[in-house]
Simulated assay, not measured.
Amino acid sequence: MVEPLIPPSRDSGRAGQAIDAALSALRRGEPVLLYGQGEAVLALAAEFVNEDNLQRLRQVSARPLRAVLTRRRAIALGLARRDALSGAVSIALAPELPAGVIRNLADPAASLGADPPGLGPEPAIAEGPELAAVALAKLAALLPAVLVLPLAPSEAALARRRRDFAPVDTADVLSRRAAMAGLTQVAEARVPLADAEDARLIAFRPGD
């Protein structure tokens, strides 16, 4: 059952501070830890990716990196079908992909050529922390493209103990983005899923 939205709790200020810290980190080219719905990723603004912060991510986990772009940008690069223009897509990256190619994914003035190197097969729909990472880039007034490192639960737990990763809740980021876009959160409910026991359903409506 979806419960009506209640007034903000006393933690809303803390959530706002976490978002602001994450925005600052993203603008500095530092990793941000987004968590929620039983998932977690480390994210970098794609336009600021360099070999140093790329190596920093790779030291955390050997899991494959992914680029998350708006669907419009993916279509412009020839990486997604033109069946819809909204939302974002997640693209697998080859381990050896250089930082320059990742930056070009974000740069609207750049192209990848006819046969883009080091990119995975058909993009997946970005959801959860991946989608929130793009929303965070938009809130930071950056290009809406991010490099993400999906984390295993044990890796996420270790990352949350570190002070060099700005942690922020996925739901808080999406709520802030919706508010900035003129949407109002009207309901929220916990919806446990088989692979994500902490998943939440959040409903928004346009402003009057």
Score class of each variant (00 low, 15 high):
residue 148 V to T: 10
residue 195 D to A: 10
residue 168 V to H: 10
residue 52 D to Y: 09
residue 113 G to Y: 06
residue 114 A to T: 14
residue 174 L to D: 08
residue 203 A to V: 14
residue 31 P to M: 00
residue 68 V to Q: 03
residue 112 L to W: 11
residue 70 T to Q: 09
residue 151 L to Q: 08
residue 28 R to Q: 15
residue 173 V to D: 05
residue 191 V to A: 13
residue 77 L to R: 03
residue 125 I to T: 15
residue 121 P to Q: 13
residue 43 A to V: 14
residue 12 S to H: 15
residue 71 R to K: 09
residue 166 A to L: 10
residue 130 E to Q: 05
residue 173 V to C: 09
residue 107 D to M: 08
residue 150 P to E: 04
residue 73 R to Y: 08
residue 46 A to P: 13
residue 98 P to E: 06
residue 106 A to P: 02
residue 208 D to T: 07
residue 57 L to K: 12
residue 11 D to E: 10
residue 184 T to D: 09
residue 74 A to G: 08
residue 90 S to R: 13
residue 156 A to M: 01
residue 13 G to L: 14
residue 148 V to K: 04
residue 91 I to F: 06
residue 144 P to C: 14
residue 155 E to D: 05
residue 175 S to H: 11
residue 189 A to V: 11
residue 208 D to L: 05
residue 108 P to K: 06
residue 16 G to D: 13
residue 30 E to R: 15
residue 19 I to A: 02
residue 132 A to W: 13
residue 204 F to T: 09
residue 148 V to P: 01
residue 208 D to V: 07
residue 107 D to W: 07
residue 88 A to Q: 11
residue 157 A to S: 14
residue 139 L to K: 03
residue 101 V to T: 15
residue 159 A to D: 07
residue 148 V to C: 10
residue 127 E to G: 09
residue 26 L to N: 12
residue 198 D to F: 02
residue 183 L to S: 00
residue 38 G to L: 05
residue 46 A to C: 07
residue 156 A to W: 01
residue 7 P to V: 08
residue 120 G to T: 07
residue 53 N to P: 12
residue 42 L to R: 00
residue 124 A to D: 12
residue 74 A to R: 08
residue 188 E to A: 14
residue 96 E to P: 00
residue 146 V to G: 03
residue 170 T to R: 12
residue 1 M to I: 11
residue 126 A to L: 00
residue 78 G to P: 07
residue 117 P to D: 03
residue 71 R to C: 07
residue 146 V to F: 02
residue 2 V to I: 05
residue 189 A to P: 00
residue 200 R to F: 01
residue 136 L to V: 02
residue 158 L to M: 08
residue 158 L to W: 06
residue 87 G to K: 02
residue 192 P to F: 11
residue 161 R to D: 04
residue 77 L to S: 02
residue 119 L to K: 04
